[in-house]
Nucleic acid binder design. Sequence first.
DNA 1: TGCGTGCCTGCGGATAACCACAATGGTCGG
DNA 2: CCGACCATTGTGGTTATCCGCAGGCACGCA
Lengths: 204, 204
Amino acid sequence: MTDAIAHLVDDDEAIRDALGWLLRSRHVASRAWNSAEAFLADYRSDMRGCLVLDIRMQGMSGPELFDRLLARGCHMPTIFLTGHGDVPLAVGAIKKGAFDFIEKPFNDNELADRVIAAMRRDAERFTQTASAATLEAKLALLTTREREVMERVLAGKFNKVIADELNIAMRTVEVHRSRVFEKMGVRSAVDLAQILARQAPRSD
Amino acid sequence: MTDAIAHLVDDDEAIRDALGWLLRSRHVASRAWNSAEAFLADYRSDMRGCLVLDIRMQGMSGPELFDRLLARGCHMPTIFLTGHGDVPLAVGAIKKGAFDFIEKPFNDNELADRVIAAMRRDAERFTQTASAATLEAKLALLTTREREVMERVLAGKFNKVIADELNIAMRTVEVHRSRVFEKMGVRSAVDLAQILARQAPRSD
DNA sequence: TGCGTGCCTGCGGATAACCACAATGGTCGG
DNA sequence: CCGACCATTGTGGTTATCCGCAGGCACGCA
């Protein structure tokens, strides 16, 4: 796991340097790349922090890099910098989940504030994702049978009915049920229902 | 409850007419207003459909109208039309929840598609909101005591413990618990937990 | 004052859930 | 072949939940 930093991608050295200094003055660590290709080559899914991408660059553009990163499962909050007021581009980027879209020349303080906000969002998303991952990990430990029983428990069915549906003895259902609670780290079906409903509102 | 229509707000009669014809050709009913003020005067919270707002108008602007409507709890998907590529405005509008931001001159088919998509989203939101409202209504029927018991049931506590905390007999808890299930229309604590967790992930 | 409603309680029984103890049989990898 | 893991089942007992039946107390409204 790398540290949380601002990842700057811009083909203009002056901008890279300016941003680096600006952020440092606000106690935000950063690293810069001079092209989308260079960043993509270094990209690792465990990077944390935020992205600051220039729209127009030699070679791959900022939005294109953004798309590639999305495809690779990158969820870092992304701020676009542009000197060309391109509305459809901005609207498209925001709708795809970009964090913000800022026109050059930018106000230093404002930009730094946005970067900091983006870093904060990433941190929030991270902790939240971590708990979701923990839950996934626990679910993965369940055996097939246990999952079948769990589904029916969550449907509010009696052990008796579940036993009937699965053609097994009620005692067996009790055992599975108990193991599910144990593995999932809950003490009752109510707890389990709430945890799953919160983390996966529409999936399972 | 009014029917779902596209609500057009533009001070240019030519545009209003053109949009009306365009949408009619796609079987979308619409009504037009020649100013933000006029629409605001007619606005009712039970309006359904979508909004198509011009950015620049005599008097109140589209974005300002949007803000006023938000303040009044309007959640109709809103499409902004603009001839002036104003990036910060577009970004701000999208981030505030605008459905789309389209530059004039617009492509007829594209705009109609977006309007139809907006209408569909409104319909989805409506049905979803309806169930949430039903749930709220049911919750409102609970007495104070019943709510107190419900909270604790959802916390996975035994009736015995709940009785202790509330300084009442276990039998009384059972009665309240039973009434809660009855009023909420569920058959078990598990069902209740799931319904509430889905509809109100972070509130109660 | 009578009625409705909310809140409280007890008794007793049916049903469901939870659990410790104990055991059988199958699969899979070392 | 053995150990680990999984699915399965039984016995017997404790605890919880769910309900019908019955009743009491307080408050506010007609």
